[in-house]
């Protein structure tokens, strides 16, 4: 059994009087895919926001490959290898597909002012190698999209925007990818296609771990080896999909008592 890439213990987040995460324990092993399910408001997205440094935890610990995430800025957490997508797609819509993907590649680009203004031939080489790389990545999701790298992201449909967002999160070859409801606003067929493409990329990125928040149970069933169920900020069950689906507490949380 490989060691934990991400481990949370007793992780708590409060917004005023509201407890969004209540002493959560969670582990993600290297190379694993963990499904995160639970009713709306159960704390799933809050967990992502804590892991990526957008929110600060009120208590407990979160560690990513041995580093304590508390006190780390979102920038450092990204540099350590954690990327994410957002529930409501947060692409830079006026910018091109290529620009959006390159935002995700920030840590591998050179940002010196002198380099960018005056070393244009070196910049050009960096641009061309990154364009080839981005195009290849986008092409695994959609060849048509890869042919329109310089069109504004806002010109594309929901599924294409999701693809761009996932490429933005993948381009820097992260070690942990957090997917926040990738199926939202898409048909079953589109979701299936997207997941297949994602799994294809993952097989090339050795050791990529994924945490996926999802309401579509068939996605969870098909993609995840394990899943955890949250309710009111607490983990109420964890195990394989079959185990979790049979859990009495989970059934109550989702369906309510009689």
């Amino acid at each position: 059994m490989s060691e934990a890439l991400l481990s949370c213990s007793g992780l708590s987040v409060r917004f005023g009087g509201l407890v969004a995460l209540d002493a959560l324990d969670l582990e993600v092993r290297s190379g694993a895919i963990l499904g995160l399910i639970g009713p709306n408001g159960s704390g799933k997205t809050t967990l992502f926001n804590v892991i990526t440094g957008v929110y600060r935890a009120a208590g407990g610990r979160a560690q990513f490959s041995g580093q304590d995430l508390a006190g780390m800025t979102p920038q450092r957490i990204y540099a350590a290898g954690v990327t994410r997508t957002f529930q409501r797609s947060r692409l830079a819509l006026p910018l091109s597909v290529f620009d959006n993907v390159m935002i995700g590649n920030h840590r591998r680009l050179h940002h010196g002012l002198w380099f960018n203004l005056f070393q244009r031939s070196e910049l050009r080489r960096e641009f061309e190698s990154n364009l080839a790389k981005a195009r290849a990545l986008v092409a695994t999701f959609s060849a048509r999209l890869a042919g329109r790298m310089f069109d504004a992201a806002g010109a594309f449909s929901m599924i294409d925007r999701r693809r761009i967002e996932i490429c933005r999160a993948l381009v820097s070859a992260p070690r942990l990818l957090l997917l926040d409801e990738p199926s939202a606003g898409m048909t079953h067929e589109e979701t299936r296609e997207l997941m297949d493409d994602l799994l294809a990329v993952r097989s090339r990125l050795a050791g990529l771990s994924i945490v996926i928040i999802e309401h579509e149970m068939n996605v969870i069933e098909r993609v995840c080896e394990r899943c955890a169920v949250l309710n009111y900020g607490r983990k109420i069950a964890e195990g394989s999909y079959a185990q979790v689906a049979a859990d009495r507490q989970v059934q109550i949380a989702y369906l309510g008592t009689e």
Partner: peptide, 23 residues
Amino acid sequence: SWVGLSLDAVRLDETAAAVFGID
């Protein structure tokens, strides 16, 4: 340049920019 890209990212969505390492 990449600088122009980072500036645009900051203007359009500061949170998303920060999550992708942009200072």
